[in-house]
Protein backbone atom coordinates (compact mmCIF):
# COMPACT_ATOMS: atom_id res chain seq x y z
CA UNK A 1 0.00 0.00 0.00
CA UNK A 2 1.40 3.35 -0.97
CA UNK A 3 1.59 6.18 1.48
CA UNK A 4 0.87 9.77 0.64
CA UNK A 5 1.84 13.23 1.77
CA UNK A 6 -0.65 16.07 2.16
CA UNK A 7 -0.20 19.64 3.34
CA UNK A 8 -2.69 21.83 5.18
CA UNK A 9 -2.03 25.53 5.65
CA UNK A 10 -3.99 26.54 8.74
CA UNK A 11 -5.86 29.85 8.85
CA UNK A 12 -3.10 31.36 11.04
CA UNK A 13 -0.47 30.47 8.43
CA UNK A 14 0.96 27.36 10.13
CA UNK A 15 1.99 24.79 7.54
CA UNK A 16 1.15 21.20 8.51
CA UNK A 17 2.69 18.59 6.25
CA UNK A 18 1.49 15.10 7.03
CA UNK A 19 3.36 12.11 5.68
CA UNK A 20 2.65 8.40 5.69
CA UNK A 21 -1.01 8.96 4.90
CA UNK A 22 -2.96 5.89 3.77
CA UNK A 23 -5.07 6.34 0.62
CA UNK A 24 -8.79 5.57 0.48
CA UNK A 25 -9.69 7.95 3.24
CA UNK A 26 -10.95 11.49 2.98
CA UNK A 27 -8.79 14.55 3.37
CA UNK A 28 -11.03 15.55 6.28
CA UNK A 29 -10.24 12.32 8.15
CA UNK A 30 -6.50 13.01 7.81
CA UNK A 31 -6.93 16.58 9.01
CA UNK A 32 -9.05 15.61 11.97
CA UNK A 33 -6.84 12.69 13.01
CA UNK A 34 -3.84 15.03 13.02
CA UNK A 35 -5.56 17.86 14.85
CA UNK A 36 -5.38 20.34 11.99
CA UNK A 37 -6.84 23.63 13.23
CA UNK A 38 -10.15 24.40 11.54
CA UNK A 39 -11.01 20.86 10.40
CA UNK A 40 -13.88 20.38 12.83
CA UNK A 41 -16.01 18.03 10.74
CA UNK A 42 -19.08 18.37 12.95
CA UNK A 43 -21.26 16.15 10.77
CA UNK A 44 -18.70 13.37 10.61
CA UNK A 45 -18.14 13.50 6.87
CA UNK A 46 -21.75 13.56 5.72
CA UNK A 47 -21.36 16.63 3.45
CA UNK A 48 -23.84 18.42 5.65
CA UNK A 49 -22.13 21.17 7.62
CA UNK A 50 -19.18 22.97 5.95
CA UNK A 51 -16.88 22.71 8.99
CA UNK A 52 -14.09 21.04 6.99
CA UNK A 53 -13.93 23.73 4.31
CA UNK A 54 -10.61 24.09 2.46
CA UNK A 55 -9.24 26.06 -0.49
CA UNK A 56 -7.45 23.78 -2.92
CA UNK A 57 -4.01 25.02 -4.01
CA UNK A 58 -4.33 26.28 -7.62
CA UNK A 59 -1.79 23.70 -8.80
CA UNK A 60 -4.04 20.91 -7.56
CA UNK A 61 -7.44 22.22 -8.61
CA UNK A 62 -7.64 20.20 -11.85
CA UNK A 63 -6.73 16.95 -10.20
CA UNK A 64 -9.08 17.44 -7.26
CA UNK A 65 -11.96 18.56 -9.46
CA UNK A 66 -15.03 20.64 -8.66
CA UNK A 67 -17.69 19.90 -6.01
CA UNK A 68 -20.81 18.01 -7.06
CA UNK A 69 -24.26 19.63 -6.73
CA UNK A 70 -24.85 18.53 -3.15
CA UNK A 71 -21.48 19.80 -1.97
CA UNK A 72 -21.90 23.03 -3.97
CA UNK A 73 -25.22 23.65 -2.21
CA UNK A 74 -23.51 23.25 1.15
CA UNK A 75 -20.70 25.64 0.17
CA UNK A 76 -23.32 28.18 -0.91
CA UNK A 77 -24.46 28.35 2.73
CA UNK A 78 -21.07 29.79 3.65
CA UNK A 79 -20.80 32.06 0.63
CA UNK A 80 -19.10 34.84 2.62
CA UNK A 81 -15.95 32.68 2.78
CA UNK A 82 -16.51 30.66 -0.39
CA UNK A 83 -13.95 30.97 -3.19
CA UNK A 84 -13.75 29.40 -6.64
CA UNK A 85 -11.40 26.73 -5.27
CA UNK A 86 -13.52 25.88 -2.21
CA UNK A 87 -14.10 22.22 -1.37
CA UNK A 88 -15.26 20.27 1.65
CA UNK A 89 -12.37 18.09 2.75
CA UNK A 90 -14.75 15.24 3.64
CA UNK A 91 -15.61 14.93 -0.05
CA UNK A 92 -12.00 14.69 -1.26
CA UNK A 93 -11.04 11.03 -1.40
CA UNK A 94 -7.28 10.54 -1.27
CA UNK A 95 -5.50 8.43 -3.86
CA UNK A 96 -2.05 8.15 -5.44
CA UNK A 97 -3.07 10.86 -7.91
CA UNK A 98 -3.38 13.30 -5.00
CA UNK A 99 0.02 12.52 -3.43
CA UNK A 100 1.47 15.91 -2.45
CA UNK A 101 -1.92 17.68 -2.30
CA UNK A 102 -1.86 21.11 -0.69
CA UNK A 103 -4.86 23.00 0.68
CA UNK A 104 -5.48 26.05 2.84
CA UNK A 105 -8.01 25.67 5.64
CA UNK A 106 -10.88 28.18 5.45
CA UNK A 107 -11.56 30.36 8.52
CA UNK A 108 -13.32 28.45 11.33
CA UNK A 109 -17.02 28.65 10.74
Amino acid sequence: MSSLTVTFVEDNGTVRTITGVAPNQSLMEVGRANGVEGILADCGGACACATCHVYVDPQWEDRVGPPDDIEAAMLDMVSEVQLSNSRLACQIKLSDALDGLKVTVAPIY
Partner: peptide, 17 residues
Protein backbone atom coordinates in the same frame (compact mmCIF):
# COMPACT_ATOMS: atom_id res chain seq x y z
CA UNK B 1 -23.84 35.33 2.94
CA UNK B 2 -23.61 33.47 6.25
CA UNK B 3 -26.83 31.43 6.18
CA UNK B 4 -24.94 28.30 7.17
CA UNK B 5 -23.97 29.79 10.51
CA UNK B 6 -27.41 29.49 12.09
CA UNK B 7 -27.67 27.33 15.19
CA UNK B 8 -30.90 25.46 14.45
CA UNK B 9 -28.99 22.16 14.24
CA UNK B 10 -26.73 22.99 17.15
CA UNK B 11 -23.03 22.57 16.42
CA UNK B 12 -19.85 20.83 17.43
CA UNK B 13 -19.76 17.04 17.70
CA UNK B 14 -23.43 16.91 18.73
CA UNK B 15 -24.66 18.75 15.66
CA UNK B 16 -27.98 17.23 14.59
CA UNK B 17 -27.28 13.96 12.81
Amino acid sequence: SNLGRHLAFGGGPHRCI
